[in-house]
Amino acid sequence: MEGASIDSISKHLKMPKATTYSIFNEVVKEYGLHFVPEIDLEDIWKHEFIRISKHKSTKREMREEALAKIPELGVEEYITFIKFNKEVPNDEEILRALSNFTVPQFVAKLHGEEDLVIYEVAKSFYNLNKFLINFSKNLKDYNMLVNTSRIVTTFGFLPIRNELIDELMLSGSAKALLEGLNIDGRGEIKEIAKRFYQKPELLLYTMERLKESGLLKRITYFEAQPKSNINGIIKIAITNESDFLDSRNKWFAELIKIRPEEHLKYVYICDILNPSGILVFVNLSSNEEIDNLLNNMRKVIKGAEISYITMTKTLLGNLGIRNFDMRYSNQYKHLELEGLVPKVQRKEKKIRA
């Protein structure tokens, strides 16, 4: 893919460059587009592994160093719901309890059966647990119930924080590039190089390498001023596994083929293990829309209980883009294999040390 230069956008939209440029600026301003890298979190361990095993001259060296580091390779994603039994702490108290931790990437207040949702990325379950213990200790005056689940598959993404990227065992140039792109995904390489004391040529090479290997999936954006601030989470809790699995693929295929506009409302979808099911983060233009969405879902999805929780305020991080192209999801790949949707051409992944 050539990427979105004004030139290529103008070719794609079949519009003159000057018009394209002015509409581009308008769109960026209107929605507060903030360009960020989408990082393949599942593949981080491979890059870290290659890095720590490189330049190891003896077996002994490899063994000692690798053994010490292997348990910490890669990252895992989690979602935590918190319910306060009596009083709910105020925003400042929650933010204070979160500070100094690199584990939470997105935190929002909820209204309904849960009070708080936290999307976490941690190097190990131990790190996640350490965060959760300290978080609840920091809010020890409040009586709370914590429910955490490992995220298995995702659709869409939530931007991650530079504090977390900094903790990854990637090369200095890879971290500089990813952090620089996280600040401004369309920013010039020479500016990123200057900010992080790197050579621009090295960063360009790193970018090619990370794109080729798939660690840097693409540069996308989140909306700092979204069209609407009506956000929520739909909980799909499985009650009958076989009924559910049958209807699940039908639901995805219908979304893609029959209601392609509907998935634009789905900001982020993830499979969770506890309770076994799916969470769908949605962004809606009106409150009435939620009933339609839930009705559509309940018609197709069988063997599951479907409930809705309103997101009242984002305290940390940002929800991902609202214009996600479903063809780039793992779910789409799965449906492709089953022959339920048209095939899409994709690049092969290459990992170089």
């Binding site: 893919m1 050539e2 990427g3 979105a4 230069s5 004004i6 030139d7 290529s8 956008i9 794609h12 939209l13 519009m15 394209t20 509409i23 581009f24 308008e26 769109v27 209107e30 929605y31 587009l33 360009f35 792109l181 995904g185 369309r186 010039e188 390489i189 360009l204 693409r218 540069i219 996308t220 954006y221 883009i321 214009n323 996600f324 192209d325 780039y328």
Partner: peptide, 30 residues
């Protein structure tokens, strides 16, 4: 062209631009 149609057309263009930018929002080699 009546203003209302122009407005609708612009909204379609904006949406297509957003979709395009979400797939790969960066221009190469800068």
């Amino acid at each position: 062209m009546p203003k209302i149609i122009e407005k609708e057309k612009k909204a379609i263009i904006k949406n297509e631009m957003l979709r395009f930018l979400s797939i790969d929002g960066r221009s190469k080699h800068r």
